[in-house]
């Protein structure tokens, strides 16, 4: 923390968060915002590789993908969509609270975001464990059990199990797994924000961390908006 201006000019209390190389808080917060957006742009391209893999294997194995998506329960996916949209709403609200100096509201919305993020992962955990228990793993290790085959719609059950079924689930685990790691990181960031909010760091003059983490969180939501229909619905 040595680079924070310790002897900062007397002024707004949030000036203690002004780093020595910026002239004022406006310059600092605008620079941070640009930085976080550049990082998010990078994140989009990071995920794009998995969308390429999805696109290529879907184009080459259309029937396989159509068959395999019946193993995913769209109700679980839809539930998680609702959970994530709710957490995004709460995250956006937390920025509003910080901007208006509503400290109680800030703590509540941050906590709510964290809880909804946790709920997302709980649902995801049930989905993963159900599949892995029934032999639906990735790649060559994918051997669906009779039990899970019997839950498929009758028209699908009549079809033979495709040889490369695991390819779909490799992509499923990769996409949802990378997304899940991002959710975990986001939860860590929200824990950090809650600690700082409890300490009273944030207010109308200094809310860059709340805003930046919220932006990251909305990007995680945005990725899920694409994953849900691509994996569960079509």
């Amino acid at each position: 923390m040595s680079h924070l201006a310790q002897t900062g000019t007397a002024g707004a209390p949030e000036d203690r968060f002004l780093a020595h190389h910026f002239p004022d808080m406006t310059a600092q917060s605008q620079t941070s915002k640009l930085g976080i957006w550049l990082f998010l742009g990078s994140e989009v391209l990071f995920f794009s590789g998995l969308f390429v893999a999805y696109g290529v294997y879907r184009a080459n194995h259309y029937a396989l993908f159509h068959y395999a998506h019946h193993f995913l329960d769209w109700r679980m996916g839809a539930l998680n969509t609702v959970v994530l949209v709710g957490s995004s709403l709460s995250a956006a609200w937390s920025v509003r609270c910080a901007q208006l100096g509503d400290r109680r509201g800030l703590r509540i919305t941050l906590l709510l975001t964290l809880l909804l993020a946790g709920m997302f992962l709980v649902v995801k955990y049930f989905e993963y464990s159900h599949k892995l228990h029934n032999g639906i793993a990735w790649g060559a290790a994918c051997h669906p059990s009779e039990e899970i085959l019997s839950t498929l719609p009758a028209s699908v059950r009549a079809l033979p199990v495709p040889k490369d079924l695991g390819t779909f689930f490799s992509i499923y685990y990769l996409m949802t797994g990378l997304h899940g790691i991002h959710v975990l990181v986001g939860m860590g960031l929200y824990v950090w924000l809650i600690r700082r909010a409890t300490r009273g760091d944030f207010g109308p003059g200094y809310f860059v961390p709340v805003d930046s983490v919220a932006l990251y969180w909305h990007l995680v939501d945005m990725i899920w908006i694409f994953l849900f229909p691509l994996l569960y619905l079509i």
Binding site: E43, G49, A141
Partner: peptide
């Protein structure tokens, strides 16, 4: 650096996972 390098990241991550878990990518 911002728009192309993340693709390298996902490429080598996929390579790593392919090597360890035989994903079939």
């Amino acid at each position: 650096q911002i728009f192309a390098t993340p693709v390298l990241g996902i490429t080598v991550a996929l390579g790593f996972l392919e090597r360890v878990f035989h994903l079939g990518i």
